[in-house]
Design a protein around this nucleic acid. Structure first.
Length: 575
RNA sequence: GCCCCGGUAGCUCAGCUGGACAGAGCAACGGACUUCUAAUCCGUAGGUCCCAGGUUCGAAUCCUGGCCGGGGCGCCA
């Protein structure tokens, strides 16, 4: 058993072994471990195996449970065991053991989590906006969810390569180049580059719809670009540079950092090789002038890997990208974070990737589309809400809140705080939801700062910091490490049990690629803490109890801070 | 036509790898700031878990079939 194994791990291990020996089971497919109870009156963990074993053992569940309880020798961290209902076996963790466990974790930077990623590399592909288009609220989910997964995996010891797979290649650049030459407003380009690039694109796109020669021109410019024409190439590079620079201002505000900015174009040289490999293995065939891969055996429609005009498309680029990543990083897995519309594409290209013999564990983490209450939004409809505007609004609203709540605070600090709170609120809104649910955007929800929200968690954290400082001011020289943790009252126990479950929240979030599991945990923790804070005295408690409670505060703060950091949400000592 | 998601309290959503009476937030109502930060806490009220079958000792959770909503399905990514 690893260091700092959780009670759930230790108990599951124990019940499984004890069940096997008491009933002479071997290789049973019945789950013999424990799960957390959902009601504290049933103890802390429960084992449900007795009911499931009733059939194979040909005994009543309660009898099985009773025999088990009679025969087994309890581990020392269990205070008592009870049989309830149809045959649930309930375990109550001993308070001293709980205190010892939390004690031991004070020295553990992982707070009890296991560094399961030690020695493993994972590539995470997320955000990936298109060059020359502003980031809008539809981009926030990939960015924020991807970044949380990124942070969680790093925390668990993985070497993470965060790659921003920019859309920097494709037919739109023909339109962009013609559009630029005809419509550019250099002054506007200097002020708001991406906005101007988008304006150029939309104008050019609209013109192309009614003007066939315009279309021809765009196509010709695209071909020139693809052949390496220096002038077009320079323009294209400028579009990319301007775009990345502007994306970075958003990423900075969001606290998102990438290790790589490799656009699709980075893999251009590999595309013919991918096609050659497909042909060599007999995986592809001609159809209407295009080269396709049939996936009928996999129950999927065909996939085009080379267009009839000879151009490659995204499936081919994605295959080349996998090949490149394997060569360079030998990743344990590659995680893609995109919206749900790309599910089929990923299933197809994962399948082809396997056929090509590209050895990699490919994972598509998809999330539901973001919509507006009245409609879907699109660049062309012009009803997009720009990401920058959303962040501005969040910070502005947070600033109002800060000013009214902390009028005496220096302005610079107010602004810094408003940034942490406003951005946190936006991130938390996305992260606290099951990624796969469809999201209807409303300002009210996105900027929620009460109840189940980031500011609630940040507020709880700040209150703890404040209490902690006051404690040291009033009782200077106290060495908390010398003071024992006493878990006596119900609320203390509830808090302690919750504190001990931090590792499973992190692991579950990582394994399921669902940051909302961690967000839920943090919210529960903060709720229990807030109740504790409101109903129990700390500084005015008697000596001994006082120090113990301050230590519980400290342990809570450590998990809130770490957990929020894993979600990419900042904390402040004062709010 | 086929495939993937969702449908849980008035609203927004957790819970879904089966477990004990279905949970939060917001909104509503009633309380708590001379006290460790009231962005908080305590309490009340609120639900045919879309419908119908099935599997199971046990189903919001799994299976089948409907209904409603979103998305995808050959040269966009």
């Amino acid at each position: 058993m690893r260091d700092f194994a959780t009670f759930e791990e230790r108990l599951s291990d124990w019940t499984a072994q004890a069940m096997e020996s008491v009933f002479g089971l071997e290789g049973s497919d019945v789950a013999l471990g424990v799960t957390p109870t959902n009601n504290e009156k049933f103890g802390d963990y429960q084992c449900n195996a007795a009911m499931e074993l009733a059939r194979t053992l040909k005994k009543a569940p309660r009898q099985i449970a009773q025999e088990f309880v009679d025969a087994a020798e309890l581990p020392d961290f269990v205070e008592r065991i009870e049989i309830a209902g149809p045959g649930f076996i309930n375990f109550f963790i001993a308070n001293p053991a709980l205190a010892d466990y939390l004690d031991a974790l004070e020295k553990d930077p992982l707070l009890g989590a296991e560094a399961v990623g030690q020695g493993k590399t994972v590539v995470i592909d997320y955000s990936s906006p298109n060059v020359a288009k502003p980031m809008h609220i539809g981009h926030i989910r990939s960015t924020v969810i991807g970044n949380a997964i990124d942070r969680i995996y790093r925390f668990l010891g993985y070497r993470v390569v965060a790659d921003n797979h920019l859309g920097d290649w494709g037919t739109q650049f023909g339109l962009m180049i013609v559009g630029y030459r005809n419509f550019v407003d250099e002054q506007a380009l200097a002020v708001a580059p991406v906005e101007e690039l988008e304006r150029i694109y939309v104008a050019s796109y609209n013109r192309s719809k009614e003007d066939p020669t315009w279309r021809e021109q765009a196509k010709a410019e695209l071909v020139k670009l693809q052949r390496g024409d220096p002038e077009n190439r320079a323009l294209w590079e400028r579009f990319i540079e301007l775009s990345i620079r502007e994306f970075n201002t958003i990423y900075d505000r969001l606290g998102v950092h990438f290790d790589l900015y490799r656009g699709e174009s980075f893999y251009n040289d590999r595309l013919p090789g991918i096609i050659a490999a497909l042909e060599e293995k007999g995986l592809s065939k001609e159809s209407d002038g295009a080269l396709i891969v049939e996936l009928e055996d996999e129950g999927m429609p065909i996939c085009i890997v080379r267009k009839s005009d000879g151009g490659y498309n995204y499936a081919t680029t994605d295959l080349a990208t996998v090949a490149s990543r394997i060569e360079e990083y030998s990743p344990d897995r590659i995680i893609y974070v995109t919206d749900e519309r790309q599910q089929l594409h990923f299933r197809q290209f994962f399948a082809i990737s396997g056929k090509l013999g590209l050895e990699a564990n490919l994972v598509h983490v998809w999330f539901g589309l973001m919509r507006l209450p009245e409609a879907t939004f699109s660049t062309r409809e012009g009803n997009v809400i720009k990401l920058a505007a959303l962040l501005d609004e969040a910070e502005a609203r947070a600033l109002e809140l800060v000013k009214s709540g902390s009028p005496g605070m220096p302005e610079a600090q107010q602004k810094d705080l408003a940034r942490a709170i406003g951005i946190g609120a936006i991130k938390y809104t996305d992260l606290s939801q099951n990624p796969q649910s469809l999201v209807t955007f409303t300002w009210e929800k996105a900027l929620n700062m009460e109840g189940n929200s980031a500011p609630y968690l940040q507020y709880a954290y700040a209150r703890i910091s404040s209490v902690y400082d006051k404690f040291h001011a009033q009782f200077p020289g106290t060495d908390l490490a010398e003071c024992s943790l006493r878990i006596e009252q119900d609320i203390e126990r509830r808090l302690a049990i919750k504190l001990s479950r931090f590792p499973s929240a992190v692991h579950a979030a990582a394994e399921n690629y669902r940051p909302n599991i961690l967000a839920d945990y943090l919210y529960d923790l903060a709720q229990i803490y807030s109740s504790f804070y409101q109903n129990v005295p700390f500084l005015k408690a008697e000596e001994g109890v006082r120090e113990s409670r301050i230590r519980l505060c400290r342990a809570t703060a450590a998990r809130l801070r770490q957990g929020l950091e894993l979600l990419g949400i900042e904390t402040r000592e004062r709010i």
